[in-house]
Design a protein around this nucleic acid. Sequence first.
DNA 1: CAGAATTTGTGTTGCGTACCTCAAAAATTG
DNA 2: CAATTTTTGAGGTACGCAACACAAATTCTG
Lengths: 349, 349
Amino acid sequence: MTAGAIQPAVRATLEDVARAAGVSLATVDRVVNRREGVRAKTIARVEAAVAKLGYRADVAAARLARGQTFRFAFVLPTGSNSFMTNLTEQVQRTADWLTGQRGFIDLLHVDVFDPDVLAGALEDLSPAYHGVAVVALDHPRVRDAIDQLAARGVAVVTLVSDAPSSRRLHYVGIDNPAAGRTAATLTGRFLAGGEGKVAVIAGSLSLRDHTERQFGFHQILSSEYPNLTALPVIEGRDDSERTRELTAALLKRHADLRGIYCCGAGNRGIAEALEASGRARDVVWITHELTQHTRRFLVRGTLDAIINQDPGHEARSAARVLLAHCMEEPISPDQERIRIDIFLRDNLP
Amino acid sequence: MTAGAIQPAVRATLEDVARAAGVSLATVDRVVNRREGVRAKTIARVEAAVAKLGYRADVAAARLARGQTFRFAFVLPTGSNSFMTNLTEQVQRTADWLTGQRGFIDLLHVDVFDPDVLAGALEDLSPAYHGVAVVALDHPRVRDAIDQLAARGVAVVTLVSDAPSSRRLHYVGIDNPAAGRTAATLTGRFLAGGEGKVAVIAGSLSLRDHTERQFGFHQILSSEYPNLTALPVIEGRDDSERTRELTAALLKRHADLRGIYCCGAGNRGIAEALEASGRARDVVWITHELTQHTRRFLVRGTLDAIINQDPGHEARSAARVLLAHCMEEPISPDQERIRIDIFLRDNLP
DNA sequence: CAGAATTTGTGTTGCGTACCTCAAAAATTG
DNA sequence: CAATTTTTGAGGTACGCAACACAAATTCTG
């Protein structure tokens, strides 16, 4: 328990290992870097010394000596919804950090909603990139472009939105069906046994993440909360004005509308319609992504809960995964798993 | 939008800056490391060159050259509740990571519930430590021990449990009143308008985090959910068996018990009592910390929600804060803020 | 056992920065 | 303008490792 004698804060170096194993520095180097031409017996001796001294390569020195640098491209959507603006900002902060780690990020903005444009951008990418992070689209052309990059030896991670059957290295984002299920459970429980209708508003049903969310939502709603009836999914195209009109119509048509789940953007429209109707307090509204707007609606009580994915975590995780892959280092999956955050008024960060 | 001509992946070095500024390497070194004896005019020239070239020190090279190493002590509770076991494990993983960053962590276990023992341990700490992370206790002797460390120039961060009026550098942990409010909102909303009693079980009211949580809980419950009556707080001493007995008695005495909020440990006891009573589905039970046990209770439906703080984030954040302080680097507050996680069955990681 | 092949040792260089010394240049002062 | 102080330059060493060349020692082969 007590402090007692603490070990000196000095790490074993390659030289120490060489001395302990009774071999030369070059041999240790051959062993730790897995080069050819060392007898099995010697390898064992060196590895024993490594284990005994607890040798760990000094990453700073190693990187310096290697002099490698890595270039990554981050391909994000053009357009300006708050979440993507936020993500862009976080990617920039991550780029700053990476600069200190001998990594470089180029930020490209393309219209990711158009498969051809997105695929084209990926195909045009300079072969100088060691890795690419892309907000993907689950579409044959995009998958193909990703596979081509992978075939060229470029590490690809999908960000926020996945292309599951492609040869991407990793997906950095939340489990969207689970997010939908979470929204359904919150809706169902907040309405605790009451009856009525629940509306689901998506940006577009051609976006995989939106469909996955609404799938998860319906799954739980129908199995666990039979007293609630889901209305047919409405497509708001992530546009506030259009979403406002649709929501207003919905409220007018269904006097027994008890809940709204929005699995895309366009939240400002929903808030306006809800507040104008005077039913903001009676309708349970749950949406995705913490932004300056959704935060305000939540604090005000119009919005009941936010399902969130943290763009900062996502940007950093994508960079870490790419970097680790390039340096042939392992990644720890549960540190890279993106959480589905739930925010109520009380636990807003 | 297109890839076009990308910059070479080479960073500007100190030499580049020297050349661009038309001064020698030594002068650049004096400027960037804020040493004495450089004219204001020259400083400006160098800084202009730094800005123009976007020079950022190579952290790897800098660390290597400095050759500094840092020693930190992490003082955690003895005893074996799941959360603390988990935290210990995460501190060990953080220690692994830190080793690569020239930092060393010694793990000390003491009985943090005894202020004298904890204060004694802090006082006995070797002066060789550059920083200390401690699961603190808000008690005069402990505060004093922390202040003494701070006076000696040792950076102290409190971990999970704070000692607010001490001279600690930083608190790494959640906002406990907010966590209590979150629990109250969940309880209130899950019971949506129903009437009845709600029990609050704490480990001990002498633990600041527990009292803060129950304070937040009561605050929201009384103001927002007047239909729910909070019973007097019960102290389970974080002991499963004792908590089981208390819960069983509670369930027996109050037929209209609708909710249980446990702001400490001892959850296995609550689960047993609830399941034995056959009222697991009717009573909304909310507790803290995701562990193997609480996860099981949540999946099974006995438990309704978990308020969580991520021990991995906490351990890494504490290490980052200590390291940044030692290297006189700034920290970014919102990256170090520990989130209050809400886990339902659907969004379990 | 000679010759070839394999394994190991010695030695060097360079990565980008920190930190140091000493001398040279420039600015300031009397 | 000389003497003094301040500022700048030149140069070196060290950090721990990677990467390489080449020589020496060891083992294997015919």
